[in-house]
Design a protein around this nucleic acid. Structure first.
Lengths: 155, 155
DNA sequence: CTTGTATTGAAAACGAATTTCATTTACAAT
DNA sequence: ATTGTAAATGAAATTCGTTTTCAATACAAG
């Protein structure tokens, strides 16, 4: 089983392996980003990471996130309300699922995409090479809360 | 058959019907946006529309595009390299197809999405309510050019 | 034509992102 | 452990896209 803190170590090792030094600011940023199930933007990372490393500068957040993206550890995500959010990268091609209530994100493996792509190719004459699929909805927890609320409202 | 200039008129009428005055700057912006097969950002619109109305101000572009979006005529699109692009809105739910070579965009109606959503729901426990699907590839023209190039390279 | 009001564009303000640069720090070599 | 050096840092300045402000303008109703 692969825990979150394993991922922190893995990311730190990757940084080191790519020639970076391990510094306190980087540790703070990596610890935050490797463990979050929410897509975060630089400013959010800045605010959150200062809890564990108060002298952190925003510039360092930008630089570290840029590096993590280069290393393929962090993935940029476009959401309806913001386009510079980042998540731990999926391994292989996965689709994104966002809870519109609590912001929880998770990946789902995409099954039957080839058929859809072929279909579109035939219909349009486009040569389809890639795609983005993002799904929006309610995570199990938020869904349960909504159902409970609906029940009490009905009672 | 519905031509592009029909769409310009339709948009202008919609603006008027919503209480807006028809002004020269708005005509320039609408004429450009209603006819383009490319997703455009405010600055691009500003630059292009000044060809037909040089005293146009950037602020007016922002305000007019905002209004057009409110009226459901323009749709915001997220692309890999920019997140504030706008296209004439699709009628109903359609998926987007972008030519990564020339930037041409078109809509494709999405067929069998319910099955995929059900699949994801079952797998994750999420209650899926919405989705974004964007496909990337080469439009017929660019695809032909690429094939020609490949042939000459081989010869 | 006159008038009232929506609309306009220049300029200022703002926020996010980037660049600059003097200082600090990690870490390899000793 | 000490030291030298290049990497990394954060404050400040800069850039760029977007929004707000406001006096001047222009549409359209009377």
């Amino acid at each position: 089983m692969k825990s979150d803190s394993d991922r922190v170590d893995l990311w730190l090792e990757s940084l080191q392996a790519s020639g970076c030094r391990l510094t306190a600011p980087r540790r703070a940023i990596v610890t935050l980003l490797a463990e979050t199930p929410h897509a975060l933007g630089p400013i959010e990372v800045y605010d959150l990471a200062r809890a564990s490393y108060p002298r952190l500068g925003l510039v360092t957040v930008y630089r570290t996130m840029e590096k993590l993206e280069e290393l393929g550890l962090l993935q940029r995500v476009h959401l309806p309300d913001g386009c510079h959010r980042y998540l731990p990268a999926a391994q292989g091609h996965q689709h994104l699922l966002l809870c519109t209530d609590c912001g929880l994100m998770r990946y789902v493996s995409g099954d039957d995409f080839k058929r859809l792509a072929d279909n579109v190719s035939q219909k349009t004459g486009f040569e389809v090479t890639d795609h983005w699929l993002q799904l929006f909805g309610l995570c199990p927890d938020c869904s349960a809360v909504h159902k409970t609320r609906a029940d009490s409202a009905a009672a």
